[in-house]
Design a protein around this nucleic acid. Structure first.
Length: 843
RNA sequence: GCCGCUGUGGCGAAAUGGCAGACGCAACGGACUUAAAAUCCGUUGGGCUUAACGGCCCGUGCCGGUUCGAGUCCGGCCAGCGGUACCA
């Protein structure tokens, strides 16, 4: 293949402008109080989800969101905003550690190399980041503040009175650790015996380790937890006013999973025990014909009868041995064992059998349920399998089958609430339970506390020491707490973290040793958006003035994969810091947008396996960065999933070449010179109109992030001006400003070239104001309207824009085509939509 | 199962309830060229009809509804993609 002729000299233009932007610090945003800061301007903080710098480098998915935010950032700057548009690296993470385990190369080196490559790629695309604000989560100057924030969380609790985090000193009870927002608990974790390590949920696929495919079992271990559940209510409520996609809000709400219901106490026959269950349907209490405890419930051992004890023990053992895979697989088939004890239904006083079954989870509610088989699918399946009684207590509103009806209806067979509608029945029975001291109204959440420790090397060490089995914080002055040097980064195999190998480091004092766990990768990304406001600050995680000026994030763009966890965790930390008075804002991200993923040309997800991965640098080598950016935006709506197309890139590249030739032509010796068609001439009316339509469309579309249609409009502009014999330079110059956020290199170069021959007031396009459109110039004297008969277009006619309804109606009725179609029919009403159409109804 | 998103030409897609298919790709025809590439101009949803200009019908996953008028709103399905997994 011989070398393709470049459609325009992007290969010399683009590096030139990239260098120039760097040298002039053009995209550096000074902070309040710094030289060059203009307090008169409004601010705009536009943020990307910063990447994990993997060894593979950028793929075309990363720059999709980055291009969108870059367009917005450049646009807002042209509109006079102080724009904060930063980039950094979420650099702690498993791949670098695993590479270290294989090769012995320290993760820090791998990380540094990967960052350098990522940064080079991003610069080559021409993004206008303020690189003076670059941050890396693995940098001690950064993670000292991650550790500091952990200490804030560790040192506080959620006061239920105020629903706010407060210093732990304000807690008056005798066990502060029971309320601390960071605490240690014995919790089941994903233990992989083959790998000798604990895995995060995301690292477990179908009950097997993502790496190696080894079985993973649940095993209780002592872990650091963050009490995010204390914020469940606020995390739901304060989501409401944010400008986020409804789907994402819903996803978060469902993840938090609020359920309103009641706890009900059941006495156990012949025992001095009670079992408390949680139910969302207290109105079905009379229908509770049996009871189920989770196999792990501590009551089981005490309640099991001697003749059932063995069966119970066997079942418990079976369940414990089940891997996640088996549990998932067997989910459809219910299993369980009768424990030989009975409970008393507090409403009906019936004696009901107590079972254990693994469909009841120990971690949710009270770890016990009342079985109401008539009105719960799972209970019904269980009751049918084990032949337990089924008692209908809710009458469906229509003629539906009663057994298995889970909706709302009327209470039956329930003396205390007989005949009441479900909502009222719930109220009545809950009130009765409360009067009798047998229960209370309560709320449960699916959300669990956040398992915050990892048994890894490449993460932030906890600023915690242990002495006589008790944890305590190290002082802030000891931060950053840097991980010790190690030669061997492998897990120890016993479940003990690799940091245990650094024996000197572990020993804190004669009496105390360091915490060996490290924080999960989420930690660094929970607050990076704050650090961007003031990345150099050595005295505080973010300066107060800087935070007050820049926060909130006005626009946050990233992938849906972070729709739940990252965004939930970051909101949680933000709220703690807010409550403690360290921040002025309650929520971090005002407007959120998720870009859709880009598929390969074959319509499949890009992956090495299919060989359909596109490297941005390859595309840029052929078509240039501007074409790459514009194509990414022209493909379709930002939020939508869409396939890559190389011929599509070529089309956009042709558009940019047409822009180039609008201004430039080749002379005899093949050099590009300013086009002879350019002139300081008055535009035609039609040209003015199209320019102003373009200003309007591009402006509105950027605000709405509808970049594809903005580009389409610019294509219309270029097509119209290409055919003009005289090209009015003032209008073309304005067009370059519109194009600038999308194709910054090309537009800058052409703008500069124009300045060489035509008078130009400011030296650079970036000093231009964003143009305003004039509505008057968009108006037409005459427009075409459609004439319809019964909703079908029968003719189109030119009419004066100012034509009145009456004139339009008369015109339509007099039209021969319309008359043809209404002939012989009786005339109904005539709908007139000025500027659009007239619809004549005839039957 | 449940929840969410998406279904429009050969393809990516446009369209405040008001002329479906803007813009681009691909394809085809023409100009330029010794030729090709590049560039420029034009045609391009399907069917029927006309010598031609033109005209008619159908068409936004399927079925129904609201409306003078539905790709758009409402109800019920179907398919694809994504998330989630017994949360009482």
């Amino acid at each position: 293949m011989h070398e393709r002729r470049k459609p325009y000299p992007f290969d010399s233009i683009e590096p030139k402008w990239q260098t120039l932007w760097d040298e002039r610090r053009l995209f550096h945003a000074p902070n309040p109080g710094e030289p060059g800061f203009d307090p008169a301007q409004p601010k705009y903080y536009v943020l990307d989800m910063f990447p994990y710098p993997s060894g593979a480098g950028l793929h075309v998915g990363h720059p999709e969101g980055y291009t969108a935010t870059d367009i917005v950032a450049r646009y807002k700057r042209l509109r006079g905003f102080n724009v904060l548009h930063p980039m950094g690296w979420d650099a702690f993470g498993l791949p670098a550690e695993q590479y270290a385990i294989r090769t012995g190369q320290h993760p820090e080196i791998t990380t540094r190399q990967n960052i350098a490559r990522f940064k080079m790629q991003l610069k080559r695309i021409g993004f206008s980041y303020d690189w003076e604000r670059e941050i890396t989560t693995t940098d001690p100057d950064y993670f000292r503040w991650t550790q500091w924030i952990f200490l804030q969380i560790y040192g506080s609790w959620l006061n239920p009175e105020t629903q706010k985090a407060e210093p732990i000193a304000t807690y008056c009870g005798d066990d502060p650790d029971s309320v601390r927002l960071a605490y240690v608990a014995e919790v089941p974790v994903n233990w992989c015996p083959e790998l000798g390590t604990v895995l995060a949920n995301e690292e477990v696929i179908d009950g097997k380790s993502e790496v190696g495919g080894f079985p993973v079992v649940r095993r209780p271990m002592r872990q650091w937890m963050l009490r995010i559940t204390a914020f469940a209510e606020r995390l739901i409520d304060e989501l409401e006013p944010l400008a986020w996609p409804d789907g994402i809000k819903l996803l978060q709400r469902n993840w938090i999973g609020k359920s309103v219901g009641a706890e009900v106490q059941f006495a156990v026959a012949d025992h001095d025990e009670t079992i408390t269950v949680f139910t969302t349907r207290p109105d079905t209490l009379y229908g509770a014909t049996y009871m189920v405890l989770s196999p792990e419930n501590s009551l089981v051992a005490r309640l099991a009868s001697p003749d059932q004890a063995e069966a119970v023990a066997i079942y418990q053992k079976e369940v414990a041995a089940k891997s996640d895979l088996e549990r998932t697989d067997l989910a459809k088939d219910k299993s369980g064992v009768f424990i030989g004890a009975y409970a008393l239904n507090p409403a009906s006083e019936a004696r009901i059998p107590i079972w254990i079954a693994d469909y009841v989870l120990s971690g949710y509610g009270t770890g016990a349920i009342m079985g109401v088989p008539a009105h719960d699918e799972r209970d019904l399946e269980f009751a049918r399998k084990f032949d337990l009684p089924i008692l209908e207590v809710v009458q469906p509103p229509n003629d539906e089958v009663t057994v298995g009806f889970v909706g709302e209806g009327t209470a039956i067979n329930s003396p205390l609430i007989e005949g009441l509608a479900t909502t009222e029945a719930k109220q009545r029975i809950s009130a009765w339970l409360e009067e009798q001291g047998l229960g209370r109204r309560t709320i449960n959440y699916k959300l669990r506390d956040w398992l915050f420790s990892r048994q890894r090397y490449w993460g932030e060490p906890f600023p915690i020491v242990w002495s006589e089995g008790k944890h305590s914080a190290i002082s802030e002055s000891e931060l950053p707490l840097v991980p010790p040097p190690l030669d061997d980064f492998k897990p120890t195999g016993s479940g003990e973290p690799p940091l245990a190998r650094a024996t000197d480091w572990v020993r804190y004092s004669d009496a105390a040793t360091r915490e060996l766990n490290t924080m999960p990768q989420w930690a660094g990304s929970c607050w990076y958006y704050l650090r961007f406001c003031d990345p150099e600050n050595n005295g505080r995680f973010v300066g107060e003035d800087a935070e007050r000026y820049w926060m909130n994030v006005d626009l946050y763009v990233g992938g849906t994969e972070h729709a739940v966890l990252h965004l939930l965790y970051a909101r949680f930390w933000h709220k703690v810091l807010f409550d403690l008075g360290h921040l002025k804002t309650n929520e971090p991200f005002q407007r959120l947008v998720n870009q859709g993923i880009i598929l390969g040309e074959d319509g499949r997800k890009m992956s090495k396996r299919w060989g359909n991965v596109i490297d941005p640098l390859d595309v840029i080598a052929l078509y240039g960065a501007d074409a790459f950016r514009c194509y990414e935006m022209f493909m379709g709506p930002l939020e939508q999933m869409k396939p890559w197309s190389m011929t599509g890139v070529e089309g956009v590249s042709r558009f940019l070449a047409r822009v180039w030739r609008l201004f430039m032509e080749e002379n005899q010796s093949g050099e590009w010179i300013l086009s002879s068609s350019l002139a300081e001439a008055a535009p035609t009316k039609a040209q003015l109109k199209i320019l102003h339509a373009t200003i309007k469309k591009v402006t509105e579309d950027i605000e709405a992030l509808s970049f594809n249609t903005a580009i389409a409009q610019m294509m219309i502009f270029v097509n119209a001006f290409t055919t003009a014999e005289v090209r009015p330079v003032a209008e073309l110059r304005t067009f370059l400003v519109l194009l600038n956020p999308f194709a910054p290199h090309l537009s800058s170069e052409l703008y500069e070239s124009l300045g060489k021959r035509f008078s130009i007031t400011s030296p650079e396009i970036t000093d231009q104001p964003w143009p305003e459109y004039e509505e008057a110039l968009l108006a037409e004297d005459e427009i075409e309207i459609a004439l319809q008969v019964n909703g079908k277009v029968r003719d189109r006619v030119q009419v004066a824009t100012a034509a009145t309804r009456e004139e339009l109606e008369a015109l339509a009725l007099a039209n021969p085509r319309v008359q043809e179609f209404i002939a012989g029919k009786s005339l109904g009403k005539v709908v007139v939509i000025p500027g659009k159409l007239v619809n004549v109804v005839a039957t």
